[in-house]
Design a protein around this nucleic acid. Structure first.
Lengths: 136, 136
DNA sequence: GATTATCCTACTAAATCTATAGGAAAATAA
DNA sequence: TTATTTTCCTATAGATTTAGTAGGATAATC
């Protein structure tokens, strides 16, 4: 299951990309438009800012804005930041690799074999989709 | 993340398929060979039996055995039984569809759009892999 | 100085996952 | 018949994760 965090984060990014505002957009506006708890969204936007997707401005007229062009924001990076590893098991993860403690032989493990294919299939989707692709 | 339940279930199925035993295989043997808690595995094998993957026999000489040939066991069905829906959001699920309560327009939802592609990619992998494919 | 909006940490409630406990039921063997 | 073996089944408990809340600090503007 996709976490609400990821879901809301994606919706917020999409909203920002779609309205193409020239001024920062406030959390309250995004939360209202997308039916998201404002406080929860606040923490999500914070991590998106800390990970280089958003910029922010405080005080009156403040809010959040996209730092990059939507077609430069790949879903691979968004998913990794919000949802975590794309691989379903650590032993097939590119960015978060870990050996399974219960598995003596990775090369002969059926789970490894299947999840490697799943990972590749997912990676291809995420790599071939940018934020811009989700709007039109 | 793949749940341990699914991981262990897959390993158990793979083990049964690979040893090609003519007699039922006991939980204890599978658990030992695959480094799985026996009691936990017990409950997993139970759901695999209830869902038509395994047969069982009680008492001495009892145990579990595959009901179908490994090449007839598709990963789609195994994953659905052990892990649940293949789709990451209910609004793109084939077998467990549900409308998102927070989403007024499914057709214009970016999450829906992305997760539809992810679902299709995953389905293709699961459909093109049987238990037999995971052994060789 | 007042107001507005983000920033930040910590906490809590609920749900889910990962088992474990303990016996009932059925098959076999002595 | 009785003992042994193995699955069957329900309930429960501990750990982890998720989803959301509380409450104030910080910074920018008016």
């Amino acid at each position: 299951m996709l976490s609400k965090k990821t879901k809301y984060g994606l919706k917020a990014l999409t909203y920002l990309a779609s309205i193409e505002s020239t001024v920062p957009v406030q959390i309250a506006e995004i939360a209202k438009h997308e039916n998201i708890s404002q406080k929860f969204l606040e923490s999500i936007l914070l991590t998106l800012r800390r990970n280089g997707f958003l910029g922010s401005k405080k005080g009156k007229g403040g809010g959040y804005y996209l730092i990059k062009s939507p077609d430069e924001i790949q879903m691979t990076t968004v998913m990794r930041v919000l949802e975590g590893p794309i691989a379903m098991v650590p032993c097939v993860s590119l960015n978060f690799y870990e050996k399974c403690e219960d598995c003596p032989n990775e090369g002969q493990c059926s789970v490894n074999k299947l999840m490697l294919k799943v990972r590749d299939a997912n990676l291809e989707v995420y790599r071939n989709n940018t934020l811009a692709d989700l709007i039109s």
